[in-house]
Structure formats: C-alpha cells, structure tokens
Amino acid sequence: MKRSREKIVKWLLIGITVIFLLFMLVLPMVEVIYRALKDGLETYKTALTAKNTLSALRVTLIATVIALTVNTILGIIMAWQVTKFDFKGKNILSTLIDIPFSISPVIAGLAFIMTFGRSGWAKPVIDGINNALGTDIVLVFSVPAVVLATIFVTFPFISREIIPILHAQGRTEEEAAALMGASGMTIFRKVTFPHIKWGLVYGMILCTARAFGEFGAVYAVSKARGKTFTLPLEVDALYMSGTADSITQAFAVSSLLVGMAVIVLILKNIVEYRGKSKKSV
C-alpha cells in the first residue's frame, strides 16, 4: 500500500514538473523557431543578415566579451578579499556585491543616465577626462553605456560562484604555502586557482548567458537602433513595428539568442560534469 502511494506521489510530481516545463519553456521555444522559419529559409537568412541585426549582434558580442573579462577579474578579486581577509565592513561589502541581483535592471540603467547623462553629477568629470586625453567618451546612449550596463547587471555571477568554494576551502592551504615562502601570485596560481577553476568557468558561463539576454538596463541607456541596440532590443524593435514581416524577423533574431542559450546550456552541463568528476578523484 505504502509503496504504491509513494509511487503515485512520485509520478504526480514528475508529471507536474514536466507539464509545467513543457508549457512554460519548451513549447514557447519551439514556437520561436517555428515562427522564425515559417516563411522559409530565405526570409530567415535575410532577417539575420539585415544591417540592424548585424549591428545588434556586434554590440551584444562587444558588451558580452568586455563584461565577461571585467567581471572575471573583478569577481576573483572580490571573492578573494571577502573570503581570505578579515576587515571591518566586510559584511556590508559582501551584501553590496549582490545589489544587481536584487535591483531591477531598468533602475540600474536609469541610474547610469542620472549619473553620467547631460545633467548628471559625473558629467563634468567625464568631460574633464575627455578634454585631457582628447577622447570622446560618452557614457549614455552609446556602446560604452551598453557595456557598462551589462557589466553592472552581470557582475555578481562570478564572485557568487567562487565565494562559497573559497569559504569551504578555508585559508590554511594558502597559509601553508605562504609559510614555505611562496609569493602571493604563486599561491594563487598553484593553490587557490585549482580549487576555484570549475566554479569560475561555471560563473563565466552564467555571466555570458545573462549578458546576451540583458534587456532592461540596456534598454534604458541605448536608444539608437542600428548603432547601440543589442539583440534583445532589436528583437523588441522588430516585434513592435507590427508588420507581418517584421514579426517573422523578430522571431528569426530571437532564434539566434535561443541558439546561443542552447550552446551555453550545453557548455554549462559539460562544466558541471567535469567539475564533479574532477572532485571525486
């Protein structure tokens, strides 16, 4: 009796999960691909090679690569100092790292405009730098603005992946290495890095996925289609135009993002698998 009831519960729960995932995730994804290819491969190709799409792809890739690089370096530094040192205000700092998780991205984007925009308090500083260096950096409604917004939204991913690993590992291995006279860099390379390697790669994958798909923060600071739009913004713009063609194009561009997401998911699974099998050695 008891066994069969357990079985019913088991299959019931599995059933609910499967139905939920099917309707909420799988079918919409399939719908995107179906809509994208509905008018034939030719239309699909045209949509993907349109000037605006290529520009959006370029901006997305630039933002992602820079955000990933910056966040990897910053993420390691932040995780390191939060776990390996004791200082006053450490808890506050470690809470601050999480702000992008808890704040709406649109607000983050608007905050950037308020800070660096025409009437923002940091505007004179930027102007000063531009004057001194002879550069022409604009931090709102520009590609650098998109990059900054993307960095902001994605920066906790890497440090949040590494912090628990460093916490669990403790400090004694580093102390042991330091006592033997190893330099900070050697300690990091030989002792710490092997511990965080897979966590770091995992964090980088999550960071990439989020950077590809970010909409809200980027939407706030990017207004020029074909210049500063990213793929998600381009999809939105195409869809909002409302013609039958543009809607198909919107789905075509969306399918690009879906494809990137699938690649990231596969990578993530490979990393998780390798990370696990490595641990059990």
Partner: peptide
C-alpha cells in the same frame, strides 16, 4: 611568515588538495 623559515603542520594538515 614567509621569511621566518619555520615549518608548520596544520591541525587539518592543509595539504594541497590538487
């Protein structure tokens, strides 16, 4: 610590796991 030339055995050994 790195220049004192002292050998140290930690409570949990702190062997380099990797």
């Amino acid at each position: 610590a790195s220049k004192r030339g002292i050998g140290f055995v930690f409570q949990n050994y702190a062997l380099f796991r990797y």
